[in-house]
Amino acid sequence: MTDKPTLLKVLLKQRHLQGHTAFRREYDRVAKKIEPDLIGGGPSKAQFYRWLSGELATLPYADHCRILEAMFPGWTATELFEPHDGGVDFVPEPPRKADAVTARPSTLPSAVTMPLPPGVADVVAVFPSRSEFMHKLPPHELFDGAQRIRMSGLSLNLLCQHYPDKALLDLLESGTSVECLFLAPEGDHIKAREREESQPPGHLATLTRLNIEALRRIGTRLSPDAQARLQIRTYDESLRFNITIIDNRSCIVQPYLPDARGVESPTLVMERKDGTMGLYDTFTQVFESMWDRAQEVTE
């Protein structure tokens, strides 16, 4: 154990959050804002005090790191777990990030990306997890003002759980078309995915049914013209990618990894380039092929 406190310990003491119960309350408060799925997922008491002791050999899981960075803007998770030289009573300030590389894609707002070398087609950003992606590009920045949204995957939580019903209603009434392709909750492949994630039988199927029903309820509140712009289909095939296509210009793709929840998988952001075949075109074709084979959800 180091004889110096970690920066995290110093910052928590300044906020009177050095106790496990107080910290967990703050953890859940921050999680509610940026990733509601993480509410209640904070560290155990033993884990928490290991965080403060400086005994960790590696950083905590990515979800924990993202919550900590949201708690302490300006500090990275790596910096928070380093020994602090200023003493427990010293008030540290975040380092300046003037030299950080922050390039914005041409149409997707607020994505913090690294410049990519030639040969990476139309990829404009890569995130280590979906939760990190959502932190940089929350759903309202993706969907607000969109004219066409196409999505395929498992339960489509990005739209169904993280985007307000009222905002989706307004989009549809204003002329936006929304096409949602869910993994069939009664099919064989969702059962296989539950086993792969070590989820209880029926867990993912229930979540998917709930999301489908949520969209159908929104449909009942729409005008006749807007109802026609909301389309819901299901497919029963091997689960490979979560695909979101916005306005024939932007595409977000996440592979489904074995033994990992969807929020833990890497996320790629692509921008369509006129006259150039890239990954945007590849994944758009994947979506369209699956959509054509899918079954429409009816009453």
Rank of each mutant, 00 (worst) to 15 (best):
E82D: 15
G54S: 14
Q18G: 10
L59E: 00
H16P: 00
R15A: 11
A46G: 04
A62F: 06
G19A: 07
A62I: 14
T76L: 01
Y27H: 08
A46H: 12
A31Q: 04
L11Q: 05
E69I: 07
T6G: 02
E55H: 09
V30R: 10
S44Y: 09
W51T: 13
T6D: 04
T76F: 02
A22T: 08
L38I: 12
L52A: 13
G74M: 09
K32D: 13
I39Q: 07
A57W: 04
H16D: 14
D37V: 05
T58V: 00
H64Y: 15
K9L: 13
F48M: 04
P60R: 02
A77N: 03
L11G: 07
F23T: 05
L17K: 01
T6R: 09
G19V: 01
R66D: 06
A57H: 07
A57F: 10
G86D: 13
L59H: 06
W75S: 02
G40S: 06
A57S: 13
I39R: 09
F48I: 12
L38V: 15
P73K: 04
E55I: 09
Y49F: 15
G42A: 03
W75E: 11
V30F: 11
A77T: 14
P83A: 05
G42P: 03
K33E: 14
E82R: 11
Y49C: 05
G86E: 02
K32M: 15
H84N: 02
P83N: 11
G42L: 06
S53M: 13
P60N: 02
C65V: 06
H20N: 12
D37L: 12
S53Q: 13
E26Y: 08
G86M: 05
L38F: 15
A62G: 00
L38N: 05
H20L: 07
Q18H: 14
G41L: 15
Q18T: 06
K33C: 10
W75D: 01
R15D: 08
L52V: 01
K32G: 04
Y61K: 09
D28P: 12
R25L: 10
A22M: 09
L7H: 01
L52P: 15
F81G: 06
R50V: 06
P43F: 07
R15P: 05
L7F: 01
S53P: 00
Q18A: 14
E82M: 14
E82L: 15
E82H: 15
I34V: 10
L8K: 00
P60K: 04
D85G: 08
K45D: 08
L52I: 05
F72Q: 00
